[in-house]
Nucleic acid binder design. Sequence first.
DNA 1: ACATATTTAGACCGGCGGTCTAAATATGTC
DNA 2: GACATATTTAGACCGCCGGTCTAAATATGT
Lengths: 224, 224
Amino acid sequence: MDQRRQARVRLRQLPDQQRAAWLDIAEEEFRAFGLERASLNRILTRAALSKGQAYYYFADKGELYRAVIERAISELAGLINASPIQPESVADYWQQTATLFGHVTEVLKQNDRLAELGRGIYREAAAQAAIADLLDALHTQFERLIETGQQIGAIRSDLPLTLLTEMAFAAAREADRWFALNAQTLHPQDARAINHRVFSLFAAMLAPSDGGDASAQASKPYKE
Amino acid sequence: MDQRRQARVRLRQLPDQQRAAWLDIAEEEFRAFGLERASLNRILTRAALSKGQAYYYFADKGELYRAVIERAISELAGLINASPIQPESVADYWQQTATLFGHVTEVLKQNDRLAELGRGIYREAAAQAAIADLLDALHTQFERLIETGQQIGAIRSDLPLTLLTEMAFAAAREADRWFALNAQTLHPQDARAINHRVFSLFAAMLAPSDGGDASAQASKPYKE
DNA sequence: ACATATTTAGACCGGCGGTCTAAATATGTC
DNA sequence: GACATATTTAGACCGCCGGTCTAAATATGT
């Protein structure tokens, strides 16, 4: 475990240019093949790195992947620069959330590189394991957003926060995947309409249940 | 491609007992490691199969995986023996659907083997590719269920069927994953309550939008 | 008994991620 | 400049991987 920290420190202390050059090449490979199917040897050859050099700066393949994703997340954060939303009403919550997601969607639509890298993460359990800490931070942010919605009454509180978050997140990823797959065959206006309806779907699934529909029942808040 | 068919035929013509013995061992490995991280060599050693033998009956590792999953699906189908639902009203649709899913949930809860095998499929893109045809059939069934709901007016028709299906399916998998992870720490009554509320969430996300909430708008049916 | 077709054994291949040792290079000290 | 020490680099090597291939063994038909 100390090996890991040492290697990370060494990488951080490297001249920016060199580190960037290495990560660029690694990123290209990971983007094309994901974590497991990417060839470390191929990366090293392309980057003109010896094995000894590589393992001096990266504890293993997963750490190299982590470095690539960490950089990508920084870049994305810079493009988005999201501040925590501060809704004053339920309508306001949905308004601000829609704006936030619209922003993210827009940025990723104009940045295939980051979008593809992001999708890759959720295609492999190993990738998620390799960047568990980064993922944790992201999911926490997502949870906080949901939590804020619960506090203001925009979001149902009768299900465990983690469950609600993960279901919504999974559905969001699938929607993203669908758009990535079908974007070309869609007219821009259709795409916009569908996007809007997908958002309404999220609002519907996350809204407090009013006990009015065929299968709902009175819902007490869920407590751990 | 002909190689593939030949090998499949040979496998089918094998004595049931022998084929079952092989698949049992392979299944154990796949269940523990998934497709990519499973070791074919390890399976062959454990099953006392030579390389030549193996590749005489399986075109490749993926085909062996496919054979395992195909058998598991047959077994599951036998345990569930679902007939297409025939709802007479919206309430009836949700009623029958709830019953169907309750049935599936119950079967999988009492059959960790099949449940884990199923989860493994969605953890690896390679696994999904290896059994693409089987998966197609399953997703088609799922789509038909949604489609029936649309026809009777229980399910929104303002989004492409595939998108709606995939989002719902993804959310369902995530819910399953959450339950698998948290089942032990949950009181049975809580589990039942949550299960019920999750179902209400699905009903809410799939129900036709009435244009009444904060972010929805009038929705025209989506046509390809 | 013999020819033919099916089935099995396992050596072998290139490539993988990762380890290890020795050489090269930088750094500090007199 | 010389020398000792610490950092950095090179690349041979390891065990294992999925997959190929050839030759031997075995079954089948006549």
